[in-house]
Amino acid sequence: MSELNIAMVEKYRNSFLHEVEANVEEGDWVKMCMQCGVCSGSCPLGSHWEHSPQKLFMMIRAGKREEVLSSDSMWMCTSCYNCVVRCPREVPITHIMHGLASYAKRLGLVPKGQQTAKFAQHFWDNLVKKGRVNELKLGLNLYFMNGFAEGVKTSLKMKDIGLGMLKTKRMSPMEIFGGHKVKDLDGFQAMVKKAQEIETARIEKNMNA
């Protein structure tokens, strides 16, 4: 268990809801859920989740901290925004899902080997490096995420699509050498760093308050 996690458990002993409200993006909205279940019914992947959004919200209110933060449900969200569009209470459910995922990651509670979490890390690292997503590298990263043998297998399976993309100039092989980037890369990276600092400071403040 991470130090931060232990501290947070200590801090919000009585109310996980308050912890979520203070530390999770849009967590303030969790209390506004009226348990109608429209989100769960609207989620195209709903049947694959262990906990539907409705249940996650109820678990937050019921103080089931471990279960919520170590759940892989919020990692399964594909950001289709169906739930947000349909929620009669206009709760930003998608944002909360990502907020919960991000908070769980910060606390070190992500289930081991969670595939979306892994890919999300690759995506983030890829993006922050140049300020642009390097699709060639991201694709290769994804294929080889779970080992060399699987990577080769997936690459062969996808080779026709890859060649097609090369032919139509949708993907450049030159990307493998560095790749394109934003105009002011230093500025971009400073901005991301500052944002991370602010967020960490906020959460640390919550922890120590």
């Binding site: 809801l17 209390k31 506004m32 009226m34 348990q35 109820m58 209110r61 019921a62 209470r89």
Partner: peptide, 14 residues
């Protein structure tokens, strides 16, 4: 009124 109650932090449990 229900919403106002939720905003004030009244917990609703089914």
């Amino acid at each position: 009124f229900y919403r106002s109650g939720q905003k004030k932090g009244i917990l609703f449990s089914k």
